[in-house]
Nucleic acid binder design. Structure first.
Length: 857
RNA sequence: GCCCGGGUGGCGAAACCGGUAUACGCGGCGGACUUAAAAUCCGCUGUCCUUCGGGGCGUGUGAGUUCAAGUCUCACCCCGGGCACCA
């Protein structure tokens, strides 16, 4: 459980809408697969299902203590077999679908087979009829949205599992636990999220989300337009395809670089160094093959983190082979270097040092020629020139500006068969296998000849087997393939016989994010045994383009929200849900911040036990360092809600958290400030109840005059604030009304009827109590939200400021409908104004009535 | 480096479309009640000058637009977040 700030926010919003007669679905669920539960199981040997169950009870108890109005009948846990049955079912939907690139939608795989058999499509250019059955199966498997592929993956030895790109931080460490991550090729389950890249970008226009999250998603998907260019290579090696966003600079390509892991490296590496090989190109090694092998080994030993150190020197080695620049026929040397990444574009680049800083750096270090193909401005100082300008040294492109040159060269490439315009994404397919125990088993069977078979839907849920040890199997050889924890299951789980064929179960489990990709759908219809979610219920609740309000932390800006959108779109394409996007409105709540403390090892210590003496913080008499961060378990700086409840009560805590600032802003916790809201509640109580006698101090008479106006203004502004989640200002308005009541002997009847209702979303307990003491019918929770009287809110007088030469010189009370002539006359007659105008006629008069008269003299 | 946010009193923060900057709360100061304290209630609380009428200056810095700028434009500084050898 994170800090409850966001939960308080949705609870208030839900209660407000219920009082307005809305049918509110406000659920809470538990994403309980994953590392914490598993690690606890490893340590204690207790099955994670048992500890998970216990934790859920604790969480529920704590959440209930906050007075949250969740519909507990709709609660789900991703670890519940009745739930993950459908997570597995969705996986099978992915497995049984393909992405139709023409229609840009997912379709059942059976339709691909039909199209192939009918001859509408070919299998990568080969007639379907000409394929052997095994090749047909292999082709079909390669087209599925869930497919197995050998790709460079993020291998985290400390966690014993592979990780998705999204789970690796920019420092090259695991998102969970900060362990180093290494690249290595492995056969793993992948989900084809990249096919959805364009739709994941475009459909961000359909949702009401914070700009920052929209930017993060666009950034992560990283669409970039450019061209693929094909370079022929000396000898009998196949040509090399490069991706570039600057095809206009191709005349300046003076060498070429492949990623060290590139497929063609072996076949193009020369037998011996050709004439003219410079010494710095060879690592001092006699043969190209040895030099390349040495460089590749060195690269593979580096963790992602090492590869990303800031002051990175360019390194690389010549392959001994040349490519031909298709534009000018120049022979250019081919290098491998780790500044080119296998996972982006084609894993190969044409290097244009004149217009690329990285290439410039490499060219200088390796003594390679540099040709400018864009004319820099005369005052340009520096190396590579990235800006706009006319093309030079570029044959038929000379004189064209960058954009025009790009269009021209792409046309040339396409006409002459040397390449084509294309789009590349930073986003990569979602690595979906984990070697951990505590996750959803992937419902796939492997046949004796490598054929894949989905577990029958009737067999779902596929439960986890019992094992003695929940750890992924450890390996002596660090290069050995990771061994999933499920490999330790008994044979009667692992092996399945169908029609006399023995299949092996898939031993990987799904990643943490699988269950949370679709839980919002299950809340709609949590007990449905027939379907993931009933069609009618889904259409009813998702009618406004998805979930009406999703409050969560920005930390899900990429991971969870991207994955969930992807799954949702697949389900949409297959007709299982009715909206293209899952979450219509997203709101990021801020964090509660607090001091945290680390000891000399950099380990967090319990902030509650840190003492301050003479400006020095100590823990167990050891000096500790003060840091500042998000309140929570990981920094050990939580304020225990139970202690706050005991001292101030739940209503105070709820109000305090809302009053501290806007919901989307992080703010420091300050126990000192709590007394403010606590005083408010006491004052409210004293306004309504005589503390000595318990008498209810409510008058039979309604309010009048200013107090009545204040009441209606309060109703108006609190209601407006509720819609916009401006809870801090709503609370401030309630403070003002409450303060105004202090001077009254008794609370006027109309105010007494309204105040507990306005307050009840924030402080439900005291509101309910007052409601009952006043003898009102039913619960304040079901009382209708009050409405203000427009007539009473409308002002009759306004304060008009009078400016002389831009400075405020007087303030006058004027009727709201004052005419310009009257206003100006009044302004000019003001003594304070006269003191500054000297009685002279103004040169210019601007009136914005009834607020401003501005005079220029 | 690129992309998002943000910078307002001693502190948390308000200020809708450019129109009274600092609502509301905390803290501080003064007063009432009390033997006293707590609690409560009342008043003051941006800053400088003041003949007590007022006046000058104030929303990170510097320019600009405007009768008028916390709000719009440009440049810069600082803080937070995301991405980063992505061709």
């Amino acid at each position: 459980m994170g800090h409850p700030l966001g939960y308080i926010g949705t609870d208030i919003y839900s209660r407000y809408h219920r009082m307005n007669g809305a049918n509110v679905l406000h659920p809470m669920g538990f994403d309980a697969f994953g590392l914490p539960a598993e690690q606890y199981a490893v340590e204690t040997g207790i099955h994670p299902a048992i500890t998970t169950e216990k934790n859920l009870e604790t969480y529920k108890r704590q959440l209930k203590a906050f007075g949250f109005s969740y519909d507990w009948d709709r609660s789900v846990a991703t670890t519940d077999p009745a739930y993950f049955k459908w997570t597995q079912w969705i996986f099978l939907q992915l497995f049984n679908s393909w992405f139709d690139p023409d229609r840009k939608v997912a379709r059942p795989i059976s339709e691909l087979i039909e199209d192939l058999e009918a001859g509408h499509l070919s299998a990568d250019g080969v007639m379907w009829q000409n394929l052997e059955p095994a090749d047909k199966a292999r082709y079909i498997d390669s087209r599925r949205l869930a497919y197995i592929d050998e790709v460079p993956v993020n291998w985290c030895p400390a966690l014993g599992t592979v990780l998705a790109n999204e789970e690796v931080t920019s420092e090259g460490l695991s998102d969970r636990g900060n362990h180093p991550v290494y690249q290595r090729p492995l056969r793993q389950w992948m989900l084809r999220i990249t096919d959805y890249a364009d739709r994941l970008i475009d459909d961000l226009d359909l949702v009401d989300w914070p700009a920052s999250v929209v930017a993060m998603q666009r950034n992560w998907i990283g669409r970039s337009e450019g061209a693929n260019i094909v370079f022929e290579v000396d000898g009998d090696t196949p040509p090399i395809r490069v991706f570039t966003t600057r095809p206009d600079t191709v005349f300046g390509a003076t060498y070429m670089v492949l990623a060290p892991e590139h497929d063609l490296v072996d076949s193009l590496t020369a037998q011996m160094w050709p004439d003219g090989t410079k010494p710095e190109w060879t690592l001092g090694i006699d043969s190209p093959a040895d030099a390349v092998a040495a460089y590749r080994l060195a690269t593979s030993r580096k963790s992602d983190r090492d590869r990303q150190v800031d002051e990175r020197e360019k390194t690389g080695v010549f392959t001994g082979t040349f490519a031909i620049n298709p534009l000018n026929g120049e022979r250019i040397p081919i290098f491998i270097a780790d500044y080119v990444l296998m996972g982006y574009g084609t894993g190969a680049i044409m290097a244009v040092p004149g217009q690329d800083e990285r290439d410039w750096e490499f060219a200088e270090k390796f003594d390679l020629p540099i040709v400018r193909t864009v004319m820099p401005p005369p005052d340009f100082e520096g190396n590579a020139y990235l800006g706009d300008g006319p093309a030079i040294n570029s044959g038929f492109l000379d004189g064209l500006e960058v954009e025009a040159a790009k269009a021209r060269i792409i046309q040339w490439l396409e006409v002459n068969g040397h390449g084509e315009g294309t789009i590349t994404y930073r986003l990569r397919d979602w690595l979906f296998s984990r070697q951990r125990y505590w996750g959803e088993p992937i419902p796939i069977l492997h046949g004796p000849n490598g054929e894949l078979r989905g577990v029958d839907e009737a067999e779902l849920p596929l439960r986890l087997p019992e094992v003695d040890d929940y750890r992924p199997a450890s390996m002596d050889d660090e290069d050995a393939d990771p061994m999933p924890a499920l490999a330790k299951a008994d044979e009667d789980w692992r092996l399945v016989e169908i029609d006399g064929v023995t299949y092996t179960r898939e031993l990987n489990t799904m990643p943490q994010w699988a269950g949370s990709c679709w839980y919002y759908l299950r809340f709609i219809d949590p007990d449905n045994d027939e379907r993931m979610v009933g069609r009618e219920a889904e259409e009813y609740w998702m009618a406004n383009g998805g979930v009406d309000l999703y409050v969560g932390g920005v930390e899900h800006g990429v991971l969870h929200l991207l994955y969930a959108r992807f799954w949702h779109k697949v389900l949409y394409d297959l007709g299982h849900v009715s909206t293209p996007e899952p979450f219509a409105r997203l709101f990021n709540q801020g964090y509660i911040l607090a001091d945290a403390f680390t000891d000399d090892r950099g380990v967090y210590v319990d902030a509650a036990d840190v003492k301050l003496n003479d400006g020095v913080y100590t823990y167990n008499d050891e000096e500790v360092t003060r840091v500042y961060g998000k309140m929570g378990k990981s920094l050990k700086n939580s304020v225990n809600p139970d202690a706050i409840f005991a001292e101030f009560g739940v209503d105070t805590l709820r109000l305090y958290e809302m009053f501290m600032g806007p919901l989307d802003t992080s703010r420091p916790w300050s126990t000192r400030d709590i007394v403010g809201v606590h005083r408010f509640l006491h004052r409210l109580w004293r306004n309504f109840i005589d503390e000595d006698t318990g008498e209810v101090l409510v008058s039979d008479e309604p309010s009048s005059g200013e107090l009545q106006v204040l009441l209606h203004k309060t109703i108006a502004s609190v209601s407006g604030d509720m819609e916009h989640l401006h809870f801090n200002t709503a609370v401030a308005r309630l403070f003002e009304l409450n303060n105004a009541l202090v001077a009254e002997d008794r609370v006027p009847a109309d105010i007494a009827a309204v105040f507990p209702r306005l307050l009840s979303p924030f402080a439900p307990h005291i509101s309910e109590e007052l409601w009952h003491r006043m003898g009102k019918e039913g619960s304040v929770v079901t009382a209708p939200w009050p409405h203000h009287d427009e007539e009473l809110v409308r002002e009759e007088m306004a304060t008009m400021i009078v400016q002389v030469n831009g400075k405020v010189r007087d303030r006058l009370e004027v009727p709201i409908g004052i005419t310009e002539t009257e206003a100006v006359a009044l302004a000019l007659a003001s003594e304070r104004v006269l003191a500054h105008t000297g009685g002279a006629d103004p040169r210019k008069v601007i009136a914005r009535l009834p607020n401003v008269v501005s005079l220029v003299v």
